[in-house]
Amino acid sequence: MEPVRYVDLLNQRYKAQGFPPYQWTVNEPTSLTALDKPLSQCRVSMLTSGGVSHCSMPTWDAYARNDFRLDTVDPAATQADFTVSDSYYDTTDAEIDVNTVFPIDRLRELETDGTIGSVAPRLWSGFMGRIYKRTHVLEEAAPALAEELHDDDVDLFLLVPA
């Protein structure tokens, strides 16, 4: 099947509600930084934006807008430790098995079998819902997260949208 035209559909929806066409952000790629070590020696971290919360934390606001809360996740947590709360996609499978949107068990398995060097000491959940403050993302939130990754000596960061 052809990919679903999500952007076109959302524009159609906004138009039906009387809004002007949404100005989607176009991010220009930065230069590629090649790894200086094999994957099997890399420390990997991961972020989900799918409204995934550890049971020790409040659930996410399923209808969140401009929510810059950012949770750290213990990489030893297992899929049974999470709740999923997000109105912007069908969470049925993620509630059964969080690995469909946040493959935390799978990441540890790739550490065990030697595909990656190690799982970082902190994984992440955030940037969920709808975020319209793109300048804040570019100039504050994303750079702050990059600093945290630097502190953890992360080589690879996997960003998982829902």
């Binding site: 969470t91 469909t100 949107v101 493959p103 068990d105 998982v160 949208p161």
Partner: peptide
């Protein structure tokens, strides 16, 4: 959406 790593409870596929 909700399944970037495939179906639930399919660990080999997800991996």
């Amino acid at each position: 959406m909700g399944n970037p790593f495939g179906p639930a409870n399919k660990p080999d596929y997800q991996r």
